[in-house]
Simulated assay, not measured.
Amino acid sequence: MVSIIVAASRNNVIGKDNQLIWRLSADLQRFKKLTTGHTIIMGRKTFESIGKPLPNRNSIIITNQADYSVAGCLVVHSLEEALEKSKDQEEVFIIGGGSIYKTALSRVDKLYLTLVHHNFKGDTYFPQLNTADWEISDRKDCFPDDKNEYAYSFIDYKRK
């Protein structure tokens, strides 16, 4: 199974200047819980914003740079190559960025969305979902608290 995991604002912003705009402790915990023990696929810029391989995950980085390498990560040059290298996995998570999400959206089975109930200015966006292709399999709405500045919802989608 190939899944996307993403946190996006109401206006589909996912980042600015290669960084997350918000910090939601609950979202980071959910990301860790869902992806630990699995393969994660990301673009080079997303990897560089994280800065290191995430523990207890197999990291695949997609880049156009022929000589790019990172110790502890597999570097490939297309989404197709990344998916081929991880085809024996039970579930693979695509974790960003914007262009990788856009390329992958039509190919994934599941989408784990953290919807941040706020509009943000940014330069990286998650593609608009065609709701005719997806159905909600689970939803949890959450209010701001001392560790989460904004209201948010965890929404899991599966392809119809």
Rank of each mutant, 00 (worst) to 15 (best):
V2H: 03
V2R: 05
V2I: 14
I4T: 10
V6F: 01
A8H: 01
S9W: 00
I14G: 00
G15A: 09
Q19I: 03
L20H: 15
L20E: 07
W22R: 03
R23D: 12
S25A: 13
S25N: 14
L28A: 00
L28K: 03
Q29S: 11
R30P: 11
R30D: 14
R30N: 15
F31C: 05
K32Y: 02
K32W: 06
K33F: 08
L34S: 12
T36A: 15
H38Q: 13
T39C: 01
I40D: 02
I41K: 01
I41Y: 00
M42Q: 09
R44L: 11
K45W: 02
F47S: 02
F47R: 02
S49I: 10
I50C: 05
G51S: 12
P53C: 14
L54I: 11
I61Q: 07
I61S: 01
I61K: 04
T63L: 09
T63G: 14
N64E: 10
D67L: 11
D67H: 15
Y68E: 05
V70A: 04
V70M: 10
G72L: 13
C73G: 10
V75D: 15
V76I: 13
V76K: 01
H77W: 08
L79E: 04
E81H: 05
E81V: 07
A82K: 01
A82N: 05
L83C: 11
E84I: 09
K87E: 15
D88N: 10
Q89M: 13
E90F: 10
E91M: 12
F93G: 06
I94E: 03
I95F: 01
G96F: 00
S99L: 09
Y101P: 04
K102A: 12
K102E: 14
T103Q: 08
L105Y: 02
K110I: 10
L111W: 00
H117M: 05
H118V: 10
K121L: 11
G122V: 02
D123W: 12
Q128I: 14
Q128E: 14
N130F: 11
A132P: 13
A132R: 12
A132K: 12
I136G: 09
I136H: 04
S137H: 07
S137W: 03
S137G: 11
D138Q: 10
K140D: 14
C142S: 09
P144H: 06
P144E: 04
D146E: 12
K147W: 03
N148Y: 03
A151W: 03
Y152F: 13
Y157P: 07
R159K: 13
